[in-house]
Design a protein around this nucleic acid. Structure first.
Lengths: 219, 219
DNA sequence: ACGATGATTATACGCGCGTATAACAAAAGG
DNA sequence: CCTTTTGTTATACGCGCGTATAATCATCGT
């Protein structure tokens, strides 16, 4: 008598693909790129290893899909944050900055995941394009928010400001996620708002009334 | 007749260790953590794989040594930049910022190397300590430079400013290295100096006369 | 009810990994 | 010049990797 063959249900292609992509992201976030083996991914997704190659031509293709999904998700969360927020340009910008420096965007797993793919971004033209598109999309959103501020900028000024604010937010995102214990609650958001305001010459801290749970964090 | 045994020279422990560490760093920078196998490292260092285990108890120990060396090297380069620079606080700060945003610190290989170790930083207490020490040392240097500026800061202000400037520099370092084609020559340094100045309320661009080759980059 | 379809499982293969250990030879001492 | 020491090479082992392919059975159209 041999062991019973494993029972299973058929699922839609979309469901399987997203399960496998999520499992890949989780494993990379938890243990780095090396932890995302086909066997581990399959186990996390509740299937057997062979199925991966039924939906993706190779592990590399799954890897690319997971990176694409990460980038899309991050920009989507940023866009969500300025949906339905009051009409004031300062308020909208403050909401965007704060959303980028708060979970689920501010998350150690996300940073490790992003970092884990970095070397592939350099060597794989396809992934480089994904990265560049994601980066520029984020920066473009930021630049449009900056342009809507009531100021009279010199030509080329908003581009430089958008790059600077983007870099500032990125840096806070990384260190705030990686060394959360080095910061007081809400400190990262406060520093982000204050500094973006200083770069742009506006007072964003005066427009934080609508940020969820932000008032409670301040001393 | 069997193939001749490979000739070799004996070398000092220090020389071997640093060769192996350099080889590890190069390989991670070029192809990510997965490319730094014991066989590849040994070949790059001009030895055979077994020698690695003569100088390091395990590959993991070599990995840790390589990360430590990266962090030490980066902070050392930052400290070098303010050695022997004119006495003005603004000049010294400008030199420090510029040095962080220019090769050899601004380098795609260094970013990939740094990113490649990120997941280990989270899971290995030893590496986390190295990272935290390096991060805080850099931030501390920055904070001391900020405190030397001719201003009257509120209590706690310089800490927040140092965090912000550090994050800004980090973000520019990453994107400037990863997407060099997205920036004009010297643009990253200009944006860094302008934005750090804006955060601190000083004009650093007025103190760039002593920066090597910087004037030539401006339009 | 049942046969066709293809999503899913099961099994196997070859390769490169990190590691362990024995054989060798280059340098140093007497 | 011969012996000792030990830095270095050579070889092997077991494991887990990504991949390939065959067997199976859940589902669906008729």
């Amino acid at each position: 008598m041999q062991p019973a063959r494993r029972l299973y249900r058929r699922e839609s292609e979309e469901s399987r693909r997203s399960s496998l992509i999520s499992a890949t992201q989780e494993l990379v976030a938890e243990g780095g790129p090396g932890a995302a083996t086909v066997r581990a991914i399959a186990e996390r997704a509740g299937v057997t290893p062979g199925l991966i190659r039924h939906y993706f031509q190779s592990k590399d293709e799954l890897t690319r899909a997971a990176y694409r999904a990460l980038m899309d998700g991050m920009t989507a969360k940023g866009a969500d944050a300025i949906e339905g927020v009051g009409a004031g340009p300062e308020e909208r910008l403050a909401a965007f900055v704060a959303a980028s420096l708060r979970p689920p965007v501010l998350d150690a797993g996300a940073v490790v995941l992003w970092a884990g793919y970095m070397h592939k971004v350099r060597s794989d033209p396809d992934l480089l394009a994904v990265h560049e598109a994601g980066y520029l999309a984020y920066r473009d959103t930021l630049q449009k928010l900056i342009e809507s501020l009531p100021r009279a900028p010199r030509p080329g000024q908003t581009r430089a400001e958008a790059i600077a604010c983007n870099a500032l937010i990125d840096g806070l995102w990384v260190e705030g996620s990686l060394l959360p214990s080095a910061f007081a609650p809400g400190e990262v958001i406060t520093i982000g708002l204050t500094s973006v305001g200083a770069i742009l010459g506006v007072d964003l801290m005066a427009h934080t009334a609508m940020l969820p749970d932000f008032g409670k964090m301040l001393p």
